[in-house]
């Protein structure tokens, strides 16, 4: 499965520290929230990219191996998201949602993160519609169902909840904490 990204960095054939240097330059030019794919053949890049993400504050999403090429996925951090000023009032905690899942209640979980974030781990059965596409894809959702909206930290899902409410959805809840603190089962798109 091809993964949609905003930019591809070709660092194939380059040795340490060039994959990191190229990544840094590419990420500097991105908008917050955008996703980059870094292609590298340097085996050390697997550890280095993760360490770089940790020290620069950006989000390491995962790595796929394609023959000799390692494809690393990163998302540029967004200050607005980290502030987490959530204003949508109807929320549910991660563990409450987990309980609903465990009792096999039939519920709709809407994941509004980018496709690549969804790819590397999402709640089983959740539906993927990135926040940027939600307004044009409302028809895929049932207005009468209870919908639980999740993202990485609860920030994008807060915006998604408000968008749904404005469009007449009545039973929408924001999953606060979000995937960053999710301890329940995960599914990958592989």
């Amino acid at each position: 499965m091809a993964i949609e990204v905003d930019q591809i960095v070709d660092a194939k054939g380059l040795s340490c520290p060039m994959p990191i240097v190229r990544t840094k330059k590419a990420v500097s030019a991105l908008q917050p929230g955008q996703v980059v794919e870094v292609q590298a053949t340097d085996k050390g890049s697997l550890a280095d990219i993760q360490a770089w993400a940790k020290s620069s504050g950006h989000h390491y999403l995962g790595t796929k191996q394609d023959g000799e090429v390692l494809k690393h996925y990163l998302r540029k951090a967004s200050e607005a998201e980290e502030k987490k000023e959530l204003t949508y009032p109807h929320v549910i905690q991660n563990d409450e949602l987990l309980k609903k899942l465990e009792t096999n209640e039939k519920i709709t979980i809407l994941d509004v993160r980018e496709p690549v974030e969804y790819h590397f781990g999402h709640i089983p059965g959740s539906l993927s519609i990135p926040l940027g596409e939600l307004e044009n894809r409302l028809d895929e959702l049932n207005r009468d169902h209870e919908i639980f909206v999740v993202c990485r930290s609860g920030s994008r899902s807060d915006l998604a909840c408000k968008l749904l409410e404005e469009n007449g959805f009545k039973h929408v809840k924001n999953v606060v904490q979000g995937m960053i603190e999710w301890n329940g089962p995960l599914e990958t798109a592989e």
């Binding site: 520290p17 840094k24 280095d48 020290s55």
Partner: peptide
């Protein structure tokens, strides 16, 4: 230069 470049690329 390797350490310096890696550190600078990591926002140091």
């Amino acid at each position: 230069f390797n350490i310096a470049a890696a550190a600078a690329a990591s926002e140091k």
